[in-house]
Design a protein around this nucleic acid. Structure first.
Length: 452
RNA sequence: GGCGACGUAGCCAAGUGGUUAAGGCAGGGGUCUGCAAAACCCUGAUCGGGGGUUCGAAUCCCCCCGUCGCCUCCA
């Protein structure tokens, strides 16, 4: 299979370096609710993993939590609660959302605050090698000590200097240098270190955690495109300087943006839709379909219409895959050619829109065969299997299934009315259920109901 | 200013040199149904604009118009 490598800026045939594929995905900073942009990114990397496993690769997947950083501290302070309590709350929420989104959990979910020894060890190594220096209570990475700095994002240090940010009180040698360790200010959480009390800077935690759990070289490192610079650029600088091994990462994968209208969906623009809201409104499969109808490297724009479309499309696949077929001769559906289309599409840098198109065509074949009363078990099995590779559950939303016996009872009463030709009464029952979000379908084998 | 992405039917979105330009949603017509729903059948675009290369371009080159992202908050 081919993957687009941000480092080389082209498609490359993927082969892991060892027996298992080592994947590190940059996780969230739990300072607020996660939004659909995050969901998009983690759905995409879930597919990377599922598809690698589909191909028979053994995968080790690590996804971190950066549970200490400026935003967490400032939000916690403004809410008047301990930073770790705030982070814990959002990590819990995120875990639950991941579960509901049917995203395969990483094998390891390390947290920055629990990796302080590794982080300190790495910083010490960088200082010892001359890649980092202390300044007041801080430690900075010396960008000029790595001559290929900027190779991932296509920047050179000189052209960056103008825009580099220097906070008051910082004493960097070069404006482009970045913090590995930040000395604690009044009222900030801190850990003891050789440079005095402080906390890790942004970037170093990922280098430390990926090193600890996956080693010097990762097969795949992923995240949103906004992480290319500075985050991933800096990770490369730290990791390669520390280990002396190149490359730090063999394949860099970055997903495009979720936009809201014409703008990027982001906290700072205040145009976010929370994952929770999306799940409640469109369901896990609906959200996933929405994400997958676009290629992962392209920007995807949010709109209610597009999400609604995803929800309807998910329902179409679900019904095709689950409604029973007839007793007739097995359908004449060449599942192998569909499987081949699917694999070809996915092998081509995870072309999920094309892969989905194959699934929808297969669904049409299934439906057609069902209409003819033929056996469709095999075709449905293939549909379910391939949809599963994309992480679709094809399950009905689980909410409110406790009402099922009552709905069954009402449906039965309505059918009594229909048998008595009391259609007006029967239609009123149907309309009433529709108001409650229950759709009825009268078929030759009786009445079926579903949510939506 | 530097680097990058994008503009395909009402909406979302594949395709990047060569059969009739995928698929989804929405819409219209039909079949089925007591009526619906679901499903099935039929139905829509020459690819931002202009020029060029080529036997042949949505797909390559040039110019123009428009949109967006990154340049140390960010999946």
């Amino acid at each position: 299979m081919k993957l687009y490598n941000t480092m080389s800026r082209r498609l490359e045939e993927f082969t892991p370096a060892g027996d298992e594929v080592k994947i590190y995905v940059c996780g969230v900073t739990p300072y607020d609710r996660a939004h659909l942009g995050h969901a998009m990114s983690y759905i995409i990397f879930d597919i990377v993993r599922r598809y690698l496993e589909f191909h028979g690769f053994k995968v080790k997947h690590v996804q971190n939590y950066t549970d200490i950083d400026d935003r967490i501290i400032s939000r916690a302070n403004s809410l008047g609660q301990p930073f770790d309590q705030l982070a814990a709350r959002y990590m819990e929420e995120f875990d639950e959302e991941i579960r509901e989104l049917n995203i395969t959990p990483a094998h390891v979910f390390p947290r920055a605050t629990q990796e302080i020894p590794t982080i300190i060890e790495m910083i010490e190594g960088l200082v010892a090698k001359g890649n980092a220096y202390r300044a007041n209570g801080d430690v900075y990475f010396r960008v000029r000590s790595k001559d290929d700095y900027g190779k991932l994002s296509g920047r050179d240090v000189d052209s960056m200097r103008a825009g580099a940010r220097v906070e008051p009180g910082e004493s960097k040698e070069d404006p482009a240098d970045f913090a590995l360790w930040k000395g604690a200010k009044e009222g900030e959480p801190w850990w003891e270190s050789p440079w005095g009390p402080g906390r890790p800077g942004w970037h170093i935690e990922c280098s430390a955690m990926s090193y600890r759990y996956l080693g010097e070289t990762l097969d795949i490192h992923g995240g949103g495109q906004d992480l290319i610079f500075p985050h991933h650029e800096n990770e490369i600088a730290q990791s390669e300087s520390y280990t002396g091994t190149q490359p730090f990462v063999r394949y860099w994968l970055h997903n495009g943006w979720l936009t809201f209208g014409e703008e990027k969906m982001s906290k700072s623009l205040g145009n976010i839709i929370a994952i929770r809201e999306g799940l409640d409104k469109y369901g896990a499969d609906g959200l996933r379909l929405f994400v997958l109808t676009s290629h992962y490297r392209s920007p995807l724009s949010y709109s209610e219409e597009a999400l609604e479309s995803g929800k309807r499309a998910a329902e179409r696949l679900r019904l095709a895959a689950t409604l029973p077929g007839g007793n007739g001769p097995p359908a004449d559906v060449s599942v192998e050619s569909y499987r081949q289309r699917f694999v070809e599409a996915m092998d081509d840098d995870l072309n999920t829109p094309a892969a989905l198109a194959a699934l929808f065509d297969l669904a049409r074949d299934v439906n057609r065969a069902r209409d003819e009363g033929r056996g469709i078990g095999e075709a449905q099995g293939t549909l379910r299997e391939l949809a599963g590779v994309l992480g679709l559950t094809l399950q009905e939303p689980e909410a409110a299934m406790g009402a099922a016996p009552f709905i069954d009872l009402v449906v039965q009463l309505r059918n009594d009315l229909r048998e008595a030709k009391q259609f007006e009464q029967a239609d009123r029952v149907r309309a009433g259920l529709a108001e409650l979000g229950i759709t009825l379908e009268d078929g030759p084998k009786g009445t079926r109901w579903r949510r939506g």
